Computed example of a mutant assay.
Amino acid sequence: MHHLRTPGLRERKKRRTRQALATAALRLFAERGYEETTIADIAAAAEVSPRTFFAYFPSKEDVIFAEIDDRLAEVRDRLARRTPGETTLEAIRQSVVNVLEALVNEHGEYGAVQVRLVLERPALQARALQRIHQTQQEVALRIRDLCPALDEIDAVIVSGIAVGAMQSVLTHCRQHGLDPGTTRAALDRALMIMESGLGAVPALNEPGR
């Protein structure tokens, strides 16, 4: 089994600060409103300076996407590695499984706040669409690196299925306030359907060297 590198103390501290800022922001957005909440408010709630906020996020808009940015980065990183003998489909599955638990539990009740903000504001919708598009492109490139025999169009299709399925299900569950257990079950179903469909692509099922 492939083991992830254990992050060092400095890296763990940076992750905690980033998480604290994101959680504080969503809580304040829920309590005060998005426009009414300032970066200074978010920094104070996370017990850091506004300067520290900008070390982690370029703008107030970007803090809304902290969680999904981090999780998608993990998917991309996992796809950059391969366990000997692992098929591309297995690598895709493992990259998704690795982030399911975090997607279900992170931010808790504020997941619905995050989704509502994005769905209500055209500027945030545009940012979300841009992130999804970039992620699908990057994942397609990583999949082709793992599986050079895969046609370029097939790689785009596979990436769209994998990223789109998880994003759509998570948005639905948070929008409707579904509990973590129901959300996890829904994501598992999406994974099962995704795997069933991708099983029809022969190149994805060839073990890597």
Rank of each mutant, 00 (worst) to 15 (best):
R81W: 07
R81V: 10
R82Y: 05
R82H: 12
T83S: 11
P84K: 06
P84Q: 08
G85F: 04
G85I: 05
E86A: 13
T87L: 07
T87I: 12
T87E: 00
T87N: 04
T87G: 07
E90F: 09
E90A: 15
E90S: 14
A91S: 14
A91R: 02
R93M: 06
V96S: 03
V97W: 02
N98P: 00
N98G: 13
N98Q: 09
E101T: 15
E101P: 02
A102L: 02
L103Q: 04
L103A: 05
V104A: 03
N105W: 09
N105M: 11
G108N: 06
G108V: 10
G108S: 08
E109K: 14
Y110F: 15
A112R: 07
A112Y: 01
A112W: 00
A112F: 01
Q114Y: 00
R116M: 05
R116Y: 01
L117F: 09
L117T: 06
V118R: 01
L119K: 07
R121M: 12
P122N: 07
P122C: 07
A123C: 06
L124K: 06
L124C: 11
Q125G: 12
Q125K: 15
R127A: 14
A128P: 01
A128G: 09
R131M: 10
I132R: 09
I132T: 12
I132Q: 08
I132L: 14
H133R: 15
H133T: 15
Q134I: 10
Q134D: 11
T135E: 03
E138Y: 03
A140C: 11
A140F: 04
R142N: 08
I143A: 05
I143H: 01
R144S: 08
D145S: 14
D145L: 13
P148R: 10
P148Q: 07
A149T: 14
L150N: 00
L150H: 03
L150S: 04
D151E: 11
I153D: 04
I153F: 10
I153A: 13
I153Q: 09
A155L: 08
A155C: 11
A155Q: 02
A155Y: 00
V156I: 13
V156Y: 02
V156C: 05
I157D: 01
I157G: 00
V158G: 02
V158K: 01
G160F: 09
I161S: 07
A162L: 12
V163D: 01
V163F: 08
Q167Y: 13
Q167F: 15
S168H: 08
S168Y: 09
V169P: 00
L170M: 14
T171S: 11
H172W: 08
C173G: 04
H176D: 05
H176T: 15
G177L: 11
G177S: 12
L178E: 08
D179A: 15
D179T: 13
P180K: 07
P180L: 08
G181H: 09
G181D: 10
T182V: 15
T183S: 09
T183Y: 01
T183Q: 08
T183N: 04
T183D: 04
R184I: 10
R184W: 05
R184V: 10
R184Q: 13
A185N: 07
L187H: 03
L187R: 03
D188E: 13
A190K: 03
A190R: 02
M192P: 00
I193A: 13
I193Y: 05
M194I: 11
E195M: 15
G197Y: 05
V201K: 03
V201E: 00
P202M: 12
A203C: 10
N205D: 00
E206W: 02
